[in-house]
Nucleic acid binder design. Sequence first.
DNA 1: ATTGACCTGTGAGTGACTCACAGGTTTTAA
DNA 2: TTAAAACCTGTGAGTCACTCACAGGTCAAT
Lengths: 141, 141
Amino acid sequence: MRVGELARTARVNPDTVRFYTREGLLQPDRNPSNNYQEYSSNDLQKLRFARKARQLGFSLPEIKSILRQADDQHSPCPMVRRVFGHRLNGVEAQLQELTGLRDRMKSALDTWQSMPDGTPDGHTICRLIEHWDDPDKANKE
Amino acid sequence: MRVGELARTARVNPDTVRFYTREGLLQPDRNPSNNYQEYSSNDLQKLRFARKARQLGFSLPEIKSILRQADDQHSPCPMVRRVFGHRLNGVEAQLQELTGLRDRMKSALDTWQSMPDGTPDGHTICRLIEHWDDPDKANKE
DNA sequence: ATTGACCTGTGAGTGACTCACAGGTTTTAA
DNA sequence: TTAAAACCTGTGAGTCACTCACAGGTCAAT
């Protein structure tokens, strides 16, 4: 496959594929006749993995070394284990925080929902902002 | 308060405070004698709100207009409602995705845990990458 | 009076893309 | 067959939300 096809099947911007290739995450062959890049299904797997890993907060250098380790079947990988463990902690924390904030948003939206449409609610926003750290107050009159 | 104190009490980098001020999110008074910026407790509230909103994925322009609406008590705010609703959807989706990925990470880590330390596990990484979208397989022999 | 901790504005750097451009290639379809 | 559309190439610049560095001004404490 070439960039466009790879990008389409992985639902990724072609420029991202090119960028990852520049950065060495993907190492496609080259068609010597036209200098086009030729990606394998292995590259597709790597690309998919990279995108998921990015969502989890891994950096490109981290992803790159994980991918390198995977290529080299014969080396142990305490590093990968460490990075994974570390990231897992971060993800858990983020998840907790996000859940709390989501609930806060929801109740704010509920409050607004119960007001007739078009009602001036600068006050509600104000209260929301003022008591953002204090969810009980934000919901009260 | 001046930048330093505001930044300290909100646990934010002073440069971020300066940046938000440049961007118009915060509008401190100026001490005309020394040209220093003077922040109010209202600014502190706005700053705290802005940081939370950022975590929820609001952009700075979005936060800015929410803050503007809050300043202007007398205008309705269908826009704020819309932006909030929109963001809430995004946050929910992100939360769902993140939860799934977290579980995937956890089980991968469990698999690795059960192997003696230092064991070459390139295979596991490979399997993890190959079957990243297929959680059942990633955990099987 | 000097040190050190603050403040000022401006400009550059970061990470991870994303877009724009100029030019070469390949596919489609008239 | 040829022209147009749809690809590909590299490079460089733009984006967002910071973050750091710098050169110089201000202020409190010793």
